[in-house]
Nucleic acid binder design. Structure first.
Lengths: 222, 222
DNA sequence: TCAAAAGTGTTCCGAATACACCCATGA
DNA sequence: TCATGGGTGTATTCGGAACACTTTTGA
């Protein structure tokens, strides 16, 4: 039985959630857009396989990777029986530059909410939907939003990201208070540059603190 | 690459959460306890494969089945590269009778909290831990507790089940109010039999109502 | 009529929400 | 000094937690 790995990679830039798609350079589904991915090798774990394929096909390196689901429908691949172990990944926007290569005809960020209008190869639409739902849920009870921002960010940027992904307008004052109350953010020495009005404080996510709190049973919410 | 499916099957009887294990009849790990499972066939989905293997090895038929995680460590099987798609299942206690067969030397329910003291084959201990954690989490935000009870049950039985799985004593009055507030339980025409004191009302889970409410965005909690 | 367990009502507290005002900065 | 966006404080509301009493049944 053959096994592939596929990844739904999200990024947040231009005030929008984006997803990484490639235009297929081979049959089946030649020239159609699809998730990055490919066959898993015998000497690598699925995680390693995903990272390898992403590097090959898109040149991105992830900051966060989580297994999503394994799709096993008998008919999901027109060639033969192939199951797919799927992942979703998050990436720092400063790393979002893409590099063309022989594995794909095109590599591109698509607005996440426009993907519905693009036909995708295989059952990749299902996988994408599943990933988006998972991202939305997870965002609300795990501090993963930071993975989609640069190391130093303003509260407003974090808030905009939450609004964009959750699709509703949160009260920024309550949001800010809540986020800060977990003590997971350090004030950064960076200063916001440009823009009118009072410059915002910048923060950075304190991963060590998070790992420490997780042991004692932190429950992050909203 | 070979692919197996493995299942962590939970049941609740004798006021205890139990897990289904089999004693292996073949190498490797001959005579060791392990999860039910086996190789996935080319013409079946993973779900179908799990149900087939469970039927073969233990004769149980599940009321609830959910994919857990796919384990892909290169070294997880001493024979060769084998990945495992794992599931957890829940079963109505009236169906908990087990049947011996040629696929396993023994088929047995173990108290869930005693599994730590039993060496398990392969990486099945990891899988089991993962399943228990998932069950605990899921119990608190999806109405799956009913799947572990008979069709007709008392509020006290449901409450005991929650206490046993979550490992803490909930306030039964608040618990009862909360559960009933979702309107997912129908009062059953059954009457509790035997026992001292005032007989309890019996309820049954209304799955149709649940499916209906889920569409309009129910969020069950605790 | 008594014991045992089921069932209902009420108070209290804290967190979530909604909302208004003050502050810092650059032009 | 003024416009712009950042930051803080507070009243209100709602749900969760804690807790005590009444009801129903079988013996």
């Amino acid at each position: 039985m053959k096994v592939t790995v596929d990844a739904v990679v999200f990024s947040y830039h231009e005030n929008e959630l984006k997803v990484l798609l490639i235009k297929r350079a081979f049959e089946p589904f030649l020239d159609m857009f699809a998730l990055a991915g490919g066959f898993l090798l015998d000497d690598e774990s699925a995680e390693d396989g995903v990272l390898r394929k992403l590097k090959e096909e898109t040149n991105v390196e992830l900051d966060y990777l989580e297994q999503l689901y394994t799709f096993t429908d008998v008919e999901r691949d027109p060639r033969e029986r192939i199951i797919s172990i799927t992942y979703y990944g998050l990436i720092d926007p400063v790393k979002h530059d893409l590099v063309s290569n022989i594995h794909a005809k095109e590599v591109k960020w698509f607005p996440a909410y426009g993907v519905n209008y693009i036909p995708l190869a295989f059952d990749h639409k299902n996988i994408y939907d599943y990933a988006l739902e998972r991202l939305r849920n997870k965002l609300q009870y795990e501090p993963i939003g930071f993975e989609l921002l640069s190391q130093h960010f303003t509260m407003n940027e974090l808030w905009s990201l939450y609004n964009a992904i959750l699709g509703r307008e949160l009260d920024i004052r309550n949001f800010s208070r809540k986020i800060l109350s977990y003590g997971l953010l350090n004030e950064s020495t960076f200063k916001q540059e440009g823009g009118v009005g009072r410059p915002s404080k910048m923060y950075e996510f304190n991963k060590e603190k998070y790992d420490e709190l997780k042991k004692t049973g932190l429950n992050f919410e909203l």
